[in-house]
Every structure is written in C-alpha cells, then in structure tokens.
Amino acid sequence: MIISIASGKGGTGKTTVAVNLALSVVNTQLLDCDVEEPNAHLFLKPEIANSVPAYTPVPVIDEQKCNWCGVCREACAYNALAVIPPDGPQKKGAVLVFPHLCHGCGACAFLCPRKAINEERKEIGVVESGRCGDLLFVHGKLKIGEVMAPPLVRQVKRHADSGRTVIIDAPPGTSCPVIAAVKGSDYCVLVTEPTPFGLNDLGLAVEVLKKLGIPFGVVINRSDIGDDKTEAFCRNEGVSVLMRIPFDKDIAVLYSKGIPFVREKKEYIKGFRAMFDGIKRTLR
C-alpha cells in the first residue's frame, strides 16, 4: 500500500507526519519525494548504502540526417525545440534545442522520420537509498538550478517496495512535482494547519486529489491555534480528520533538535497506528 503525505501550503508538517507515521507502523519504507528540498533524512539520519546519479534524456540532433521537416518541434509540448528552415541552397537550416525546457518525454526522437535525433543523458540529481533501523529509506536530491523535478520524483518512486507500506513525503504546492509524487497512491494524507493560509491551500490540494481520484483525509497540525474554519471546511466537504496534533512545546523542542517526536512521546505511536488502521479500513 502506498500512502502519500501532501499539503498545499509548505511548512504545515508533511515531513513530521511522514517520518513519525513511518516510525510508528511496522514494515515501512519512506520515499522522500520533495526533491527540491528533501529533509526527512535530517530526522531519520539513515545510513545511505547506495547513491545513484539520476538522468533525464535530452535530444541531440544529427545534422547529417536532419532535413528540418519540423516534426520534432510540433511534437514537443514544452517548446524545447525550434527548427529554422533552410534559406535557399546556400544557407542550411538548423534545429535549436533548449535543454532546460525539455521534459525528457522522448516524443521528438520517437517521431523523427529520419531517425536524426539521438538522446543524451543529462544529470539532474541523485537518488540515495539506505535504511534507518527497520525502516527503508530513499530520497532524491535535485541539482541546484535544475528545474525538472518530476522525472527525479518518478525515479525515486521506482524504488517503492511492494512488500512494504510505502510512505511518500510529497513536495508542497499543487503543480507537476506534487502530481508526480502523489499519483498512483492508494491514499493521500493532507497535512494542514488551522489558519487562513493553511485552509486556502488545503482547498486547492483537495481539488487536485478529487481530480486524480485519490481517496484522502486530513491531519490538522498545531490544531489548537488559529480558528475553527478548517474543521468546518472538513465537516462541510465530508473530509475525515484523521488526526489532530496540538501546538505542543515538547514537539517543537524535539523538532528543533531533529528528533522524530514519536521517539520521545510514545503515546503518539498509538495515534499514528490508529490513523493507519483507519486508512486501511477506508480502503477495504
């Protein structure tokens, strides 16, 4: 079973919930798919056994074979190619490749009628895997300045172990990297906080999950601050509140030291297990 942890708003406690859930339930694997700023390892301090560079293919044009027909350009959904037609017999045409716009889908190379496009690997980051006690751990780290998070997210997800409960720590937001992270999940936990900001972005995340058809529930973090509008939203929308984590000084202190709070506050292990059992029941 795959459970992804997402939010909408950043800083609501996705990683906190993902890490503590992963430590509370047996036979789990944590995939940190927040590849732009992975930080679950700061809590788990896993022993990294494997570090593999991640690549995405970018097109390289074989000038000898290309006749500037433009099929590649028309195929590219991201405008990563421009084809300059030849200007008379003296001036040859040209194909320009803009690698930072390329999503590595391969359509151009596949569709080229003259097989004039080869694919070259571009390094976008690294996938590291290891373990933290019984917990299996994998994360992706996107290179600074690299924009293509989704291919790296998908490469992290390829490590998903079907024999375990897989917990995915998703990036914040509602765009491509989030979709890449939560897609294929059996269930998604949305972590929010009861503030106007948390609620606004929770609403957006709910829209996304409805569109993707992934069942979901909400964890309200710092549940005793802010207002009751988040509770009201969940009631009105028929969204179940899976757990409430109070704004507790002990939790904040442990967080500041990089210690997952279930390690010290064992009573929460029961809470996370109950949430997990509830999710399993929902899916049955």
Binding site: Y78, N79, A80, A82, V83, I84, P85, L96, F98
Partner: peptide, 18 residues
C-alpha cells in the same frame, strides 16, 4: 503563445523563421 507555460519566446521566434 501569449499564455504558454514556457517557451513562448522560442515559439514566437519559430514563427518569425517560418
């Protein structure tokens, strides 16, 4: 391409070439 997500300049440049 006025509202394209990305690559509007490339598309527009392409149009000029075409």
């Amino acid at each position: 391409s006025a509202a394209a997500g990305g690559g509007a300049g490339i598309q527009s440049g392409q149009l000029m070439a075409t």
